[in-house]
């Protein structure tokens, strides 16, 4: 590398003088790569790594009246480990967003499937139509569900109008199920798009081959379509499960006392309870749990995929 560049510059003495920086850039591929990535790296550093380090440091502090005691200690982590409330809230959050994830993927799969296999013209329009609800704000969608599920809401007044119930159903709102229903709807776009992409990619000749070899539609789906759409299912599950576990506004508005999730408790630590170090600790514990669950999920799906192929 060094020799060639020396030779070129010697062979072309008339060429413009090249600055040291340019020469360095020309020689080092890694440097060029980092330079290209520098805007992203900068944002990652300022927006993610630095705040994360602050969060980790703060989680090792403790509250001291109005201020913080900056002696490093793992007392907060021990509290999370020892007091049952934190474990219970985490389990409840994982349960709620787990069910919401499964519900969303199951409900969105047929939609994505239909567009991928049975729509031949204006596919883009179908996709846009399916994501149309997501053009309104998240908060508005949550409020809309409050109106739908409410005591005098659409469902209750509809059922009452049909004479099917006498008293409005009170379990619809302020419950875990209200949170699950809302999350399953609010995050649907994040399932439809990856599912559609992975279904669209499936080579149709594989399906024809399966039919030729005697598979019925059901067997064909389970042996060809479903395994090949696995990447989309995994992506959709991650995209929904990870952010919904920490969701805060949906349980705050629709959860009632029994539907509160870990996100609400973290918010309280930074608000009324006034224990920022504990809030930081809970955020990190949540992050670690999500990472662990994601790894296990990934491992299981990998194993399953290997067995199929």
């Amino acid at each position: 590398m060094t020799e060639t560049s020396v030779q070129t510059s010697a062979a072309e003495p008339a060429a413009k003088p090249v600055s040291r920086l340019e020469r360095l850039l020309y020689r080092s591929e890694a440097l060029r790569g980092y330079l290209l990535m520098s805007p992203t790296l900068l944002i990652m550093t300022i927006g993610i790594i630095v705040p994360f380090l602050i969060l980790v440091t703060m989680s090792l502090w403790t509250r001291d009246g109005f201020s913080f005691d900056a002696t490093l200690t793992i007392a907060n982590y021990l509290r999370v480990w020892n007091e049952p409330i934190f474990g219970a809230l985490l389990r409840r959050s994982f349960w709620i967003s787990g069910v919401a994830t499964v519900a969303t993927v199951v409900l969105c799969y047929p939609m994505a499937y239909y567009v991928a296999f049975h729509v031949h013209r204006n596919k883009m329009m179908w996709i846009i139509l399916m994501t149309l609800p997501f053009w309104t704000s998240y908060l508005l969608r949550v409020f809309a569900w409050k109106v739908i599920l409410g005591y005098e809401g659409v469902i209750n007044s509809g059922l009452q109008g049909l004479g099917m119930i006498e008293e409005p159903l009170s379990f619809l709102l302020y419950s875990k199920s209200a949170v699950i229903i809302t999350l399953a709807h609010a995050w649907a776009a994040f399932a439809i798009l990856p599912l559609y992409v992975s279904l669209e990619k499936i080579d149709k000749s594989l399906l024809e081959a399966a039919t030729d070899l005697g598979d019925g539609p059901v067997a064909r789906f389970w042996r060809i379509t479903f395994p090949l759409s696995m990447p989309g299912i995994i992506a959709a599950s991650f995209l929904i499960f990870i952010p919904t576990t920490g969701d805060y506004i949906t349980p705050a508005l629709l959860g009632g006392p029994d539907g509160a999730m870990i996100g609400n408790f973290i918010q309280l630590q930074f608000g009324a309870v006034n224990n920022w170090p504990m809030g930081a600790t809970l955020s990190i514990v949540l992050m670690l749990w999500i990472a662990a669950i994601a790894l296990v999920f990934l491992f299981i799906t990998r194993q399953a995929e290997r067995r199929v192929s």
């Binding site: 109005f66 006392p257 509160a260 408790f265 006034n274 224990n275």
Partner: peptide, 19 residues
């Protein structure tokens, strides 16, 4: 006192969450 306020809020939030 601030200690009281914090302790009260902490306890009450736990009760509301079901503990």
């Amino acid at each position: 006192t601030q200690e009281w306020e914090t302790r009260m809020n902490e306890t009450f939030e736990q009760i509301k969450a079901g503990f």
